[in-house]
Design a protein around this nucleic acid. Structure first.
Lengths: 225, 225
DNA sequence: CGGGCGCTTGACGGACCTCAATTTTTGTGG
DNA sequence: CCACAAAAATTGAGGTCCGTCAAGCGCCCG
């Protein structure tokens, strides 16, 4: 069972776009050249229960989407980094909250592709379908984490991160231990212990809290099923 | 960690449609009137690694999609019942296996809507997008299960099932205990114990293995977060 | 009737959570 | 640049929920 201690983010603010401003950005492409908005650490980009208006693309930084049960238990569904799209997880009403993990620059793309409309660009819709399908695949891959032991989860996470950040063997985690724990369904103490265990086994080095060095990637890959 | 004991299904067979036969079913609607194919209990409908050719709609019966780690640990991603669409969980290659839980009648719909094509029906693609989005929402809702304790998981499952089967307070489970366990990330012993516990607390009755009667739905709803 | 399969029940152990204290890191202002 | 406070992470001890293993029961169907 996940931690009950997971805390809600400290900063809560409205998403930075007026409803009318970004109209038509999305009409011809999902990748228009529009100036991105900036978000501070822990700032909310959209919240659970809000209507879906945009999809988002990360220019720089890192974003998490999370769902919180009414007793405070928190599940992080995904982390998104530069180049990723997010905000596809709902059709009409957001069922999770998106927050900046680090200061981030994000483009909002108007999602003008509802079943009701008819004059929409077919290429845009196909692109949207593809993105949604990829998001579904990612979500399902993440679910498999819960089949695994604590150590396997942490190793899987490190490997996923080194791939996502396009670095190898040496990278900086954008997020803190609590975020990792809530992503993996563990407590922060367990995450900490597993990292220490891997470090003692010479599999990784942790020179600073955020920095990870994978000393033996083949062996790490062998540790996960 | 999930059970290592989860067994692969006994029956393995090829999907029942020749590649060429079902062409164009999907060109104008996702709900064409085409005779459904029948599948026996535990028969495979599509397998992990196969290319995505169709989406499927259940006429009657029940289907599970599952992913198996190379050491045998099995995760059931979803159960589908009459009226549900499935097979949307992948863009190009199936990342899970679909099997009939009970004898089922299933329609195959040709998925001729890839980015490369251009003459596809926009209404069809929008329908597909909507279905994919709903599948994504379902998957994310299912993930929240792993935040919960064993009892909460079982209660959530029973409530989900009574809703999905469009019955209330009294229904027959299509699946056995092992399937429930693999869906909830528990062992069959724990599922059994939780059901017994709920029965002793007068929350439910279990007149036969498959039959469940919810005696106190409000109280059950109150047990889950 | 009897064999096999699915489910239940019990005893036990272990992996991870909980709680609490300490250490390390981060952030801020002089 | 350093000092101090606050936040984050580590570490340890102890407990618990659920997995593991094993036996037993009931049901279905030949």
């Amino acid at each position: 069972m996940a931690s009950y201690k997971s805390l809600r983010p400290l900063v809560k603010s409205c998403a930075g776009w007026p409803p009318s401003a970004a109209s038509r950005w999305f009409s011809n492409s999902v990748d228009p050249m529009v100036a991105p908005a900036s978000f501070a650490r822990n700032e909310e980009i959209f919240g659970e229960g809000e209507p879906v208006k945009y999809i988002f693309k990360i220019e720089s930084g890192c974003v998490r989407t999370c769902t919180t049960l009414n007793d405070g238990r928190r599940q992080i569904g995904a982390f998104y980094v530069a180049g990723d799209y997010f905000g596809l997880e709902a059709v009409n009403i957001h069922n999770s909250t998106a927050e900046a993990v680090t200061p981030s620059k994000i483009r909002a793309l108007n999602r003008s592709t509802r079943m009701s409309g008819s004059a929409d660009d077919i290429v845009t819709i196909k692109h949207l379908l593809n993105l949604t399908g990829m998001e579904l695949e990612r979500t399902q891959r993440h679910n498999l984490i819960f089949l695994k032991s604590a150590r396997e989860r942490v190793v899987s996470f490190l490997i996923e991160m080194t791939e996502r950040l396009h670095e190898k063997n040496d990278f900086n985690l954008p997020m803190g231990r609590q975020d990792i724990a809530d992503y993996l369904g563990l407590t922060i103490e367990t995450v900490s212990r597993m990292l220490k265990q891997l470090e003692c086994g010479a599999m990784i080095s942790v020179p600073t809290n955020r920095r990870i060095v994978l000393n033996n990637l083949p062996a790490l890959n062998h540790m996960i099923a």
